[in-house]
Nucleic acid binder design. Structure first.
Length: 606
DNA sequence: CTAGCCCCTG
DNA sequence: CAGGGGCTAG
């Protein structure tokens, strides 16, 4: 396996969190508590000795040994006392073991300090994760659990980053005397460090988002300074090695997360043309889910290099994320891909805005105003919708959160310990840390944001298809058939409004065709049937099933025919002179509702 | 009073 | 399709 330097001690949080993720089926408490004991047992035996003790390394190749020597050199410089790095190259191998032990000891010291607060952090995050929007519906519990796991992973990564930053700052403070830098700046930096460690160690009730915000901001600032200091060093070697060895680890870490996520179906593909989107929607169509049920899997394999088989359910759920917020025009000539400032080998995270939005804008905004500010200042985002609704203030964030919801759930259900587990800190590219840190933060914050979506275009599509079964759905029906929607007054009335609009169109068509039949001289009702190739059906199908990818139930044809007859009879009897003549018809039609098939209950049926 | 429906308008 | 006004039932 990959060589593990002292920094690999920080793996333990990752093994920890990945095991927690793997155990996601367990209830929250057990997984949280078991995970600590797992670390206790696995960390000392598994990583530190193999990586650091001289005895167990005979099998190690020369290349790895050289690499390890370089890393340990870094360690010595970063951890050891100033005089310990004064010795020449000849003494180096002699002192190597000792220095490594010192480093390990120093790190253990560090780790001991972290252990206690770690518990607090976990329990705190557990509480926080439970809080948002999970009270009402049952399926929220699993999501919360999954969110919780991911939060723990984020915590772990934060600890890793923090540790790295602290190491850099140690170097920084050592060099203070030598370089005699500006006092104020130094003070500021020290304050930042103290403040951050404090806030992270005693943040039992600290808000998770706020922590993230601060971590990202501090990370930004401190890494800038640290980067500068590293460049100041005499040893170019050290600088290069540091960069490579340190950042690649974080990159790796991020990549693993993203890779894992993308393999779970999150839309991470670098670009999606409109045609691709359309084909996605087509292939995700309803008729695949039950009766016809073809080609679901092929699509996922086509887009994602997943080693796991996707169940159809997984796939359909993931696909719902492809849809965009209703406030934004769904299709734009511009590909809504966010470009990254750095080329990355992994698929970039993609926000689905109709206007190109550089993620640095998002980051900048986040760092300034935090996650719960709205994005009104960003020109590419639609203005917040209903300002009077308390929920809508955060809408732009929920837009982002839409993606992360399924992400978290998939991670929770299928995370493989191997993929997220062995994150080694043997690769760092310092200039990249800043952006990776920020993106990582944004990514996890997305997951953390309350799972609280508005109605999306795919919800609308689903509602239209449901109309083939029920013209007058009750609120309860709506709630049960849109389980991925957090219902509030606003959302409910919007859904009801949708069906009201559907009915309106439906009845208008009925009246129109009934009158047309009368004009055409139809005398016998039997001449007015509604079949799939009749003009009336085509009009209706075009409205409710535009993609024509759903098999309209026969019952709908019957109901339509009955409705047409009702209108025909009423008009023939000149009842339409009564201003409320339609009410009688409505009363008839509302009794013709049938049950919506169970398949529609799938949270992201489309 | 609120929820829900209808109607009309943009 | 959303907003808004009018209306009704509970």
């Amino acid at each position: 396996s990959t060589p593990r330097a002292f920094l690999a001690l920080d793996e333990s949080p990752f093994y920890l969190s990945s095991s927690a993720v793997a155990d996601c089926s367990q209830e929250d408490q057990s997984s949280v508590s078991s995970k600590d004991s797992t670390v206790e047992a696995a960390s000392p035996s598994g990583h530190a000795p193999t990586g650091a003790s001289p005895e167990g390394e005979h099998a190690m190749s020369d290349h790895l040994q050289a690499k390890r020597a370089r890393v340990e050199n870094i360690i010595r410089v970063m951890v050891g006392s100033p005089n310990s790095r004064q010795h020449g190259d000849s003494e180096r191998s002699e002192n190597e073991a000792r220095d490594t032990r010192e480093a390990r000891e120093a790190y253990r010291e560090n780790k001991r300090k972290q252990r206690l607060p770690q518990h607090q952090e976990h329990s705190a995050s557990a509480q926080v994760s439970r809080k948002p929007g999970s009270s009402s519906s049952d399926n929220c519990n699993t999501k919360d659990e999954e969110c919780h796991k991911l939060k723990e992973q984020l915590h772990s990564m934060q600890r890793l980053l923090r540790h790295l930053q602290e190491k850099f700052l140690q170097v920084y403070h050592q060099e203070e005397a030598e370089y005699d830098r500006d006092e104020t700046e130094v003070g500021v930096e020290r304050d930042i460090l103290e403040e951050s460690t404090e806030s992270h160690y005693i943040s039992a009730e600290d808000d998770f988002e706020r922590k993230n915000n601060r971590v990202a901001a501090e990370c930004k600032d401190r890494i800038k300074v640290a980067d500068y200091l590293v460049q100041q060093r005499e040893s170019q070697n050290l600088q290069e090695t540091l960069k490579q060895e340190l950042t690649r680890a974080v990159n790796d870490c991020v990549d693993r997360v993203f890779k894992n996520v993308s393999s779970k179906g999150l839309d991470l593909s670098p670009k999606h043309t409109g045609a691709e989107r359309k084909s996605q929607q087509a292939s995700s169509a309803l008729d695949h889910s039950q009766a016809e049920g073809v080609g679901i899997k092929s699509r996922s394999l086509e887009y994602y290099e997943s080693s796991e088989a996707h169940s159809p359910q997984d796939q359909t759920e993931a696909l719902s994320l492809v849809v965009r917020k209703p406030a934004v025009p769904p299709m734009s000539s511009v590909t809504p891909t966010v470009k990254r400032p750095y080329p990355v080998h992994q698929a970039p995270f993609q926000f689905s805005y109709s206007t190109p939005l550089h993620d640095s804008h998002i980051l900048e905004h986040l760092l300034k105003y935090g996650p719960h500010s709205n994005f009104g200042g960003l020109p590419c985002l639609p203005p917040s919708m209903d300002r009077t609704s308390p929920d809508s203030v955060d809408l732009p964030w929920e837009t982002i959160a839409m993606r992360s919801k399924v992400t978290s759930s998939h991670l929770g259900h299928h995370a493989r310990p191997s993929s997220l587990g062995g994150v080694t800190v043997d690769n760092l590219c310092l200039p990249h840390v800043k952006i990776e840190c920020g993106e990582l933060w944004v990514f996890f914050l997305n997951i953390n944001v309350n799972i609280q979506e508005g109605l999306t275009p795919s919800h609308l599509k689903k509602a239209k298809l449901m109309f083939f079964y029920t013209r007058y759905p009750s609120s309860n029906v709506l709630k049960t058939f849109f389980p991925d929607v957090k219902f509030n007054r606003c959302i409910t009335s919007q859904l009801i409004k949708w069906f009201s609009n559907f009915r309106e169109f439906y009845y208008i068509q009925m009246e129109k065709f009934a009158r047309q039949a009368i004009v055409d001289g139809v005398t016998d009702i039997k001449d007015m049937s509604v079949s799939r190739d009749s003009e009336l059906f085509r009009a209706l199908n075009m409205h409710y099933n535009k993609a024509n990818d759903f098999h309209v139930p026969d019952r709908f044809l019957e109901v339509a025919e009955i409705t047409l007859h009702e209108f025909y009879n009423a008009i023939s009897a000149t009842k339409d002179s009564d201003p409320s003549w339609k009410k009688a018809i409505y009363k008839v039609i509302c009794k013709l509702d049938s049950d919506v098939p169970e398949e529609f209950k799938t949270s992201s049926y489309l």
